[in-house]
Design a protein around this nucleic acid. Sequence first.
RNA 1: GGGCAAUUAGCUCAAUGGCAGAGCGUCUGCUUUACACGCAGAAGGCUGUAGGUUCAAUCCCUACAUUGCCCACCA
Length: 724
Amino acid sequence: MENNGNKAYNPREIEPEIYKLWEYSGYFNPDNLPVSKIKNSKIKNFCIIMPPPNANEALHMGHALDFTIQDALIRFNRMQDKKTLWLPGADHAGFETQVVFEKKLEKEGKSRFQFERSTLYKMIWDYVQQNKHIMEEQARSLGASCDWSREKFTLDPKIVEIVYDTFKKLYDDKLIYRGKRIINWCPKHQTGLSDLEVKYEEREDKLWYFKYPLSSGEGFIVVATTRPETMLGDTAVAVNPKDNRYKKLIDQKVKLPLTNREIPIITDSAVELEFGTGAVKVTPAHDPVDFDIADRHKLEFIEVIGKDGKMTNEVPEAYQGLKVDDARAKVVVDLNALGLMEKEEPYKHSVGACYKCGRTIEPLAMEQWFVKIKPLAEKAIEAVKKGKTRFVTKKYEKTFMHWMRNIKDWNISRQIVWGIRIPAWYKNDQIHIGKEPPKEDGWVQDTDVFDTWFSSGQWPFVTLMTSGQNDLKEFYPTSVMVTAWDILFFWVARMIMMGIYCTGKEPFKQVYIHGLLKDKYGKKMSKSKGNVINPLAVVEQRGADALRMSLLFGSEADSDTPISEEKIIAQQRFANKIWNASKFVMNALGPDYKPTKPARGAQSADGWRSAMDGYTKEDKWILKELEKATKKITTDIEKYKFHEAAQEAYHFFWHKFCDKTIEDVKIRIQKNSKDADAGKLVVWTVLYNSLKLLHPFMPFVTEAIYQKLPSRPKELLMIEKWPK
RNA sequence: GGGCAAUUAGCUCAAUGGCAGAGCGUCUGCUUUACACGCAGAAGGCUGUAGGUUCAAUCCCUACAUUGCCCACCA
């Protein structure tokens, strides 16, 4: 067994060849697995739909962890003779991709607004296709044994059609509506965002107290606000109906300063007595709470801030065109000059910001499409309660439930071009839903696209519906969804809701939520912190096996996982150890070694033990240890305790098999003592079984060795039988 | 304002109702023909604090402290 004459294992020379061997074998495709040729109703299926990586940048460590866990599960189940499918894909990732692309344009001194819709779309399309190919090659280099023949993209025409059908179904079921609501507007990216895409930041601001003169000319009512500039769009002042302080002012009018408008004082229970003065200015067009109040009281609606984040022409001339911040300063100065500012005090509160660019979100009232989500959420809650979808671990189930119970309608309109265009057509007051407009003239299509999660929320069934004739029937609901906790709400929750709504069944029986990756100081990895480790560079330098093992080793995956160069080096050494130990064993056995009876398919160490006399005490010990390790690794993987399984495999192979058994048998063979043959059989048996046990974690080196193992029963380790 | 998690060796983390382990690091020997990416061995811990349950607690319970995270329309 040569590795270019080097003593140390060199994965770079081995891994690409091994991947080709697997891929050409066809066994990534479940239809080609031996088990699929058997007509037997007892055959079990196992299916994972890969969370489709965003096709806008290279894979990062998080993907490497995600892929490692999935591939380990896939290989484990495939070796247990299940009809096993891992379906890969890529996500167009609407807003995310457009943001990445806009940054690229900015670097070139361009802006998205210079381009026509179709031109921009085409440019992003080409960019994404390139990235998609890169991603596929990266997945291969990590050893992902997914069925590339079934690969999907979220913009595949057939998938888009299904997404359109879902939209129509929701519309017909009155679970989707178009309406003017307060949305989260990012002035930089010029699009609305869902509540989940808004990050709240604690800020030191001011709370201003302004006197609004009563129209009667007798006195004032004092309101407190953090956003003075919006007062130009006030259409009422509200107090709590139980607030005795203001009883006699109710239904009186106020003369709104800086404008010539009179606005009423109304009561609404949304107003809290304790906050500020207990009187609140109501700006329906720029605050969600005020919007609701206005809805209840049929208040007037004045939009004073535009999509560009500047004051509109609805405000007095002096303020028109000012940026929000400048308008704020000017209002404060002007009210102060009028003697209408009572006081200002420091105030700490949280302000919504765009999760991508950090710009303050501007709540604006816009006509958009919303999913009426409560009915969908109820079904999802029920499914999880009944255990149809189980969370691993339970702690995420609680988080999920809490969010689902408090869920609010979901804005799915995005004012960008990169995505699936909303199949809605308008003519005067009429709305038509469909791929094509009605025949007569004058229909105009909605210019918005779907929130990307609207389509990826349907991923498990749209992929299987379009991948093979029986795939949906055979593999849906899928076995397990593997993903990180940060997209629990964005994605997992929506998949469960949409899956049940569209197919009547939950999309996956289990959901395994793993953590994010941290550096060795416990800090979250991010480009801005400069502490990212590029998985591909690691694969190049130290091998995919080392990377995979180090991602699983020594840390529970349901909490955030630290990864460091040191950890990867440790596993690189382990791969080297496996290589060298195997090299030694095979040299000792010789290329023609045949394990004496039973000659093939030894399934358990126990079987071997009873099959042969002449084992030493040490032989019996290691065979017993092999049995114990097999049991532990098996149950640990079944329980998603990969870190324990990996540690057990590591410890068994290195510190039991190598340190004890091989050292012992080495001497027996050297001395040619009478128990040398028994020793050979033991090392063959333990090596053979160890390769299987390690294969889900370190597929390359184990397969490479298996290919040289004398008397190997199968053509590939990948389709060997998992030991019992 | 609600909720969740963590606190164990120098560092990063496992485990377990009764002996607390690993990787890296440190120290001492070894160029023993598979591997110096190695071998043999060693040091290193009142398992955050205070109570409680128990024959027995690092583990279960209660408080507290510290840290991290998630959710939430306090104008």
